[in-house]
Write a protein that binds this DNA or RNA. Structure first.
Length: 561
RNA sequence: GGCCCCAUCGUCUAGUCAGGUCCAGGACACCAGGUUUUCAUCCUGGGAACAGGGGUUCGAAUCCCCUUGGGGUCACCA
């Protein structure tokens, strides 16, 4: 049973087959990206199949979201569900839950040939055996208890409707797996047991469905994550029993957290929990999440907040959630083309010290021989640097469009409170300091703050800018007020000229002496876009009001201590 | 624990398959300077790795073995 590593006569058909049990994980996204690239680079076809054989955990919503995420990444498929309705391709349906009769046909063949059998073990019996194996520190393998029931009886009991599963009768011999990236591996005989191929609820298991579908859909190349490597033996055996050709397998290295742990949705919960614990928080911040939910979560270390609550709580605590799923990266303001580029670099590289490229290049250049065998640790800092570079390379117009689209999706309230010109100015002045599309929404709350409620907490940089030096920033502020009142028009360029001249006279030409106190006065803190833009965004009236209140507030502070 | 796989800077990686041009290259991060009205950017420079031990060979990051370390898997989940 040779597994072909090269199939010159086969058209290239790859597939991505997510299980719609939650958001699309970045690891899954990378698998999809590589599958897509391989097909696109070889005039092949890319199939999307939804593996929803787990009735309890699958949802149509998750499948829709996965398709939306793939589309966002720029990955299109030739065959599979069509998000607009219906499906593309001739080998559908592409939801496994709709293919039950097909699986039954092939199951029947196995049953008839006695290559599979009905088994009536209860879940409790199996659990007990597993626990026993664990206690003895040996690997659990199904003991074929089901085969002790004579075949005729098995058939009769199944026909009578007794609950059962169907198991594959695994041949007792070693299995050689040939993998296009890992090479050859031999699993010794007995390593693969009589695994279940149809569950008690009548649905096929992953192993059975994947083998049948890959064969029927003509998928000649199976790419997936390394966690599936050992499963390949089961699939190879099933293909033989069913008389199917073996596809070429390639297993990609896993993508791990920076600390080497598995990247999982739990990490987000952990990040928030760690922050809550570290700050000793005992009740949720006002307007975040339900106090009952919060305390139940806090008191149970194993509990996980649902995603929306987590996002709300993280926002209230100003905690950055680690991005795990594609939609997390989207929400954080990463560019899809950058995410693809970076994801491709985790596990593959084109060589020649080249690391910036687009999906078209990836499609042209991707080859299995250059795929890494070792797990990669996901470095968000480097991703961020890539995202920054891409943003800096964008035209101001393109950046404006993309930030606006991002804002409409994730910060509609922010957008609604700004005038067009105000928003454009904010975006323009933020571009060269933006690492993500989301950053300017997070760091410019001063713009939305009510003038009458703005406060000036005296932090170290504030003290330095306002109270130190001779004259102090605070006194310079009082002097510059008249200038601001008279500058016409109240616009960035004019303000720059006027304040520049004023600084030459009053600050020995050192603009910083007045810029920083001004920034603090009008924003409440030491960080904002360039000062002239900051002033224009606010407008004269608000600038003066904030200035007056600041003078009042900080003069009192200065006198007090 | 059984079985399978893997191993180059802190991280992603080039170089490995066809041994010499590699006292190991790039990027991110880091450190030190510099530019800058804050922050961020930007510029210059720097430290930083072939896991260890045996072989094979004139010659090993590259081939072989062992040790160590890491990962995967052992579900009526995929």
């Amino acid at each position: 049973m040779p597994t072909p590593t090269d199939q010159p006569d086969h058209p290239v058909v790859t597939r991505f087959a997510p299980s719609p049990t939650g958001d699309l994980h970045v690891g899954g996204a990378r698998t999809a990206l590589f599958c897509w690239a391989y097909a696109r680079g070889r005039e092949g076809a890319f199939v999307l199949r939804i593996e929803d054989t787990d009735r309890k955990r699958s949802s149509a919503g998750a499948a829709r979201e996965a398709m939306r995420d793939l589309a966002w990444l720029g990955l299109d498929w030739d065959q599979g569900p069509d998000p607009a309705g219906g499906e593309r391709g001739d080998h559908g349906p592409y939801f496994q839950s709709e293919r039950l009769p097909i699986y039954e046909t092939h199951l029947e063949r196995l049953l008839e040939a006695d290559r599979a059998y009905h088994a009536f073990d209860t879940a409790e019996e199996l659990d007990a055996k597993r626990a026993a194996a664990r206690a003895q520190k040996v690997a659990y393998r199904y003991d074929r208890a089901g085969l002790e029931v004579p075949r005729a009886e098995r058939l009769a009991r199944a026909a009578a409707g007794e609950p059962h599963v169907i198991r594959f009768r695994t041949p007792d011999r070693p299995v050689v797996i040939t993998d296009a990236v890992l090479g050859e591996a031999t699993l010794p005989a007995g390593e693969v047991d009589d695994f279940i191929i149809r569950k008690a609820d009548g649905f096929p298991t992953y192993h059975f469905a994947v083998v049948v579908d890959d064969a029927l859909m003509g998928c000649s190349w199976v790419f997936r994550a390394q966690e599936h490597f050992n499963n390949t033996a089961k699939h190879l055996l099933l293909q033989e029993a069913l008389g199917f050709d073996h596809p070429t397998y390639a297993h990609f290295p896993l993508i791990m957290n920076p600390d080497g742990s598995k990247m999982s949705k739990r990490d987000k919960d952990k990040a928030v929990r760690a922050e809550v614990r570290q700050r000793g928080i005992e009740a949720p911040p006002p307007d975040s999440i339900d106090p009952g939910t919060f305390s139940a979560w806090l008191s149970d270390k194993k509990a996980q907040l649902d995603h929306d609550d987590l996002v709300r709580l993280a926002a209230a605590l100003d905690v950055q959630l680690p991005e795990i799923n594609v939609r997390d990266f989207r929400r954080s303001g990463y560019l899809p083309e950058v995410l693809c580029n970076f994801l491709a670099l985790n596990g593959w590289s084109p060589g020649d010290d080249l690391e910036k490229f687009d999906n078209a290049f990836l499609a042209r250049s991707f080859e299995l021989g250059r795929v890494q065998k070792t797990a990669a640790r996901f470095d968000r800092d480097k991703l961020l640097a890539f995202n920054l570079d891409a943003i800096q390379a964008m035209s101001p117009e393109a950046f404006l469009d993309r930030v606006r689209a991002h804002g409409e999706r994730y910060h509609p309230d922010f957008l609604a409170r700004l005038g067009d010109r105000q928003f454009e100015l904010l975006v323009e002045s933020s571009r060269e300091r933006s690492k993500t599309l989301d950053e300017l929404f997070r760091t410019n709350h001063w713009l939305l703050e009510d003038d009458e409620r703005l406060a000036w907490p005296v932090t170290k940089p504030v003290r330095k800018a306002m109270f130190k030096g001779e004259p102090t920033g605070l006194s310079l502020l009082a002097e510059v007020r008249a200038l601001l009142e008279g500058t016409e028009p109240f616009e960035s360029g004019h303000l720059e000229t006027a304040l520049g001249a004023w600084a030459a006279e009053h600050c020995e030409g050192n603009l910083g002496r007045i810029a920083q106190p001004l920034r603090i006065a009008v924003t409440g803190g030491p960080v904002s876009p360039p000062i002239f833009d900051t002033l224009e965004m606010l407008g004269r009236e608000r600038v003066l009001r904030r200035l007056d209140r600041c003078l009042e507030s900080l003069s009192a502070t200065e006198e007090a201590g």
